[in-house]
Design a protein around this nucleic acid. Structure first.
Lengths: 109, 109
DNA sequence: GCATCACATCGACACCTGTCGATACTTGCG
DNA sequence: CGCAAGTATCGACAGGTGTCGATGTGATGC
């Protein structure tokens, strides 16, 4: 997946008729969440001790190869759902709650 | 897309570590939303006059062929996001707010 | 009964995406 | 400097998905 910076408008889907461009952006955002590995990555990082997790601790519990996990972490980061911080040899990731909140708002009824 | 009945558990993604099976179900649910045409269908139906819309009124504004729109309506209906009611020659669709609410809850922070 | 309209299904195609092994790239440490 | 460890990137493959034209299926009305 190639996900650019995603600008999701805040209008709920069920409020005003969605424009074509907004629909494309919003769909791209949901596409990032439409993968079990990425959902589990979000969950693992969010529930980790200090609210952050190292790549090295994420490969094994998911049962996927290191390149695959790295790929999914990139997708989540490029979508703005994660932040990446390099500390020495290790890369630490944190979730960005505001991003989830934006998507959550789009589903408001 | 072939989407069976989707049973999404209500645990927020960021609350407890997501199980493998739950992640698969949740990802399938988000996959349904990860398409611009389907998002616009939801939006069009939700904002329609009586809260419902006929297929005949959905083909033209989306700029896709009738089979394609019919396909997306099937995906949304099978996922439980829409209900379908046949009245005479026409098929009327309504959104199921509870379904959106379930997905919304999964993104809670 | 038959033509017509609304809609669903089928078959086929191009494109995208998740996956992995191999490899390149940094950083830290002797 | 040279080696090792943690990650990212590359290339390639199998499988999934959106799309459409053609066709099938009911229901309506003459």
């Amino acid at each position: 997946m190639e996900v650019k910076t995603i600008d999701v408008c805040c209008e709920p889907v069920v409020d005003v008729a969605l424009g074509e461009a907004q629909a494309i952006d919003l769909a791209a955002a949901f596409k990032v969440l439409a993968d079990p590995i990425r959902l589990r990555l979000l969950s693992l990082i969010a529930t980790a001790g200090a609210g952050e997790a190292c790549s090295c601790d994420l490969v094994e519990p998911l049962g996927r190869s290191q390149p695959t996990v790295s790929h999914h972490l990139s997708v989540l980061t490029e979508a703005g759902l994660l932040t990446r911080e390099q500390r020495g040899k290790w890369a630490y990731f944190r979730v960005v709650p505001e991003r989830l909140e934006v998507l959550r708002a789009a589903l408001a009824t």
